[in-house]
Design a binder for these strands. Structure first.
Length: 111
DNA sequence: ACGTTGACCTATA
DNA sequence: GTATAGGCCAACG
């Protein structure tokens, strides 16, 4: 069950519940490559080229900052998508990020 | 082929 | 608490 790193990232990203957010490091750690958090960002970049829908807007950095919003169709598309799901975004930052944080490793482990 | 960049994180001072 | 350094691996020029 070893798929490409990017493929796995897409899988986890799709598992993110609606109205929840996670971080690159959490996904990278869940995949076993804790230090490869940067590759998660690259994977998200390729997510737009993927046939499946990948909610890249639900993935933010450790500080809950929308660092990748500039890579979206529009500079405001990311926060608009998040707010559309009920996630409050202020100044390119997720409000109550700690409360909305979704750790794939913990959630999948307890399941 | 080599050097730089990048949607980041952790550690140390 | 902030500031600085190192690491990570793939894509781009």
């Amino acid at each position: 069950m070893e798929a490409d790193f990017f493929q796995r990232v897409f899988e986890v990203a799709r598992m993110i519940p609606l109205g929840r957010v996670t971080s690159y490091g959490a996904i990278a750690r869940c995949l076993g490559s804790a230090g490869s958090s940067r590759m998660v960002g690259w994977a998200m970049n390729l997510s737009h080229h993927q046939p499946i829908y990948v909610p890249a807007h639900r993935v933010v950095n450790r500080n809950g900052l929308l660092t990748g919003k500039m890579h979206f169709s529009s500079p405001t598309a990311m926060e608009e998508l998040l707010q559309n799901e009920g996630v409050r975004v202020e100044k390119d930052r997720v409000v109550d990020f700690n409360h909305l944080f979704w750790d794939p490793m913990v959630e999948l482990s307890e399941h």
